[in-house]
């Protein structure tokens, strides 16, 4: 989902532009230092590949199709830094040539998709990609990258004051969830097919302290964003009935005494946001496990 110009309020786009520009410069520097200049054509062609991948439709159900978004897949194949660079240049070309996403909103789109989308996609693979949970983590990465981008875009729109009724928010979240699961399935299927063609293509995750820091940063920003726009998430939880269960679940063990620290508004909001994120994360892992089991049969 590419945000066009005119949607975000001035503080939002200005902040995100200001944040995205130096991060992109740093990531580009790191990505450039990490390998020789032979990677310039490689990264460019990979960006063209992600564009072209949209031509190949994946049949889902009757009559509907979906296509690859690509952030997580690129992170597994090229490493997260290079994947961020590729996604950023895709967004640049889309904003300039295809009028898909705005130029002032480029910072927002880069933050959503090229930085946090890619990082969120790489995180599960980085944590569990080496072991028994490899397939699950690949699937979860695809799901998480789309979900993170979508959640960030929605919260930016909400912060900018674009009003969305709870029903619309619920429907769009559901659509995002479906496309996220699809992205996870496509990513996993493509990785497996690729390993069949040419083993050793997919990089093993390697430990790097920077990524750990980035992961923590990601979680923090996610929680903060979720807590600044908790109304949407909260309403969503209300409508789906999760909130009721969650409240009884939370309050039962503590029913004897009042949870005074939960009364602080920002803390309550932050914990609601955190709970939402944890919920999404857990759901991704469970679904991923099930999907991986089906696939391996």
């Amino acid at each position: 989902m590419h945000i066009p110009d005119g949607f975000l309020s001035t503080p939002v786009w200005a902040t995100l532009d200001a944040a995205a520009l130096p991060s992109v410069v740093v990531i580009a520097r790191r990505a450039q230092r990490g390998f020789d200049e032979s990677r310039i054509p490689l990264l460019g062609v990979m960006g063209a590949f992600v564009f072209a991948a949209q031509m190949i439709n994946f049949p889902v159900g009757v009559g509907t199709t979906g296509h690859l978004v690509g952030g997580a897949l690129l992170a597994y194949l090229l490493g997260p830094g290079a994947a961020s660079v590729v996604m950023t240049s895709i967004l640049i070309i889309q904003a300039l040539v295809f009028q898909d996403g705005g130029l002032l909103a480029l910072g927002a789109n880069v933050t959503n998709m090229a930085i946090f989308g890619v990082l969120a996609g790489y995180l599960p693979y980085y944590l569990w990609g080496g072991g028994r949970w490899r397939r699950v983590s690949i699937f979860a990465g695809g799901v998480l990258s789309v979900l993170t981008s979508a959640a960030l875009a929605l919260s930016e729109l909400l912060i900018s004051g674009v009003k969305m009724p709870a029903t619309v928010l619920g429907i769009s979240s559901l659509l995002f969830l479906v496309s996220a699961i699809l992205e996870g399935a496509i990513t996993l299927a493509v990785v497996q097919a690729l390993e069949g063609i040419r083993p050793g293509f997919v990089r093993k995750p390697k430990a790097s302290p920077a990524l750990g820091v980035a992961a923590i940063l990601l979680a923090t920003v996610g929680v903060l964003l979720a807590s600044t726009a908790p109304d949407g998430i909260w309403k969503l939880a209300m409508t789906t009935g999760i909130a009721g269960h969650a409240r009884s679940l939370f309050s039962t063990p503590f029913s004897g005494y009042e949870l005074s620290f939960l009364q602080t508004p920002w803390l309550r909001k932050a914990s609601a946001g955190l709970a939402g994120l944890a919920l999404i994360y857990g759901a991704c892992l469970l679904i991923g496990r099930a999907a991986a089991r089906n696939r391996s049969v």
Binding site: V24, A28, I40, G44, G47, I90
Partner: peptide, 10 residues
């Protein structure tokens, strides 16, 4: 670097 990648992409 980024702009060269973009140019290649295009």
């Amino acid at each position: 670097f980024l702009l060269m990648v973009s140019q290649f992409l295009y």
